[in-house]
Amino acid sequence: MNIFRLAGDMTHLMSVLVLLLKIHTIKSCAGKSYPCSLCFILLESSSGISLKTQELYALVFATRYLDIFTDFISVYNTIMKLIFLGSSFSIVWYIRRHKIVRRSYDKDQDTFRHFFLVLPCLLLALIINEKFTFKEVLWTFSLYLEAVAILPQLILLQRTRNIDNLTGQYVFLLGAYRALYILNWIYRYFTEPHYVHWITWISGLVQTLLYADFFYYYFSSLKNNVKLKLPA
């Protein structure tokens, strides 16, 4: 474990917390006759969270962490896996099933088909993998799918244009997590013998590049001190 890896995991954890915080805020409106100002804003417009992306992440973690009961790496590793599995499935549950949270989800804007991402990733994992076993192919599939799972979210952001603050932070934290993982790989490559993982690196690099455009607008909105807006 190095500082980049730990920082990467922590930003990933923070992104999940930001999303849960957002859901909690929306949820807390449930019993009130007058929603709080933040809830009111969230309910007025859509939450800007893509259910498609969240469902893809749930699938990513479900297929990647199949080893949770068979291989023990560390207590840290197991706990983090449980957090990511639990949070991703509960987020999906809230957006689909919770009365209030569901209302803030803009279904008509979030039209990306899972199928277009899942199928090519599955085929690619069957062709390009390190070992042709059930667990290994699904693990590789999870890497490919994670690389592109953010696409429905980025498309939704571009469509809605007016980006809610928490949603912007969420996407930024996810991008930061990927960038830190690249630094982690560079560090490990020079400090650990035989540390070469082409599949992980290339899919991780592709994933990070997808955030480049978002990062550009995120940082210029910070620099100019204006609300984040993506061009049409």
Binding site: D67, D71, R188, E192, P193, Y195, W198
Partner: peptide, 10 residues
């Protein structure tokens, strides 16, 4: 190819 840390990353 996985001499160092078999899937030890999240």
């Amino acid at each position: 190819a996985k001499d160092s840390g078999e899937h030890d990353e999240l």
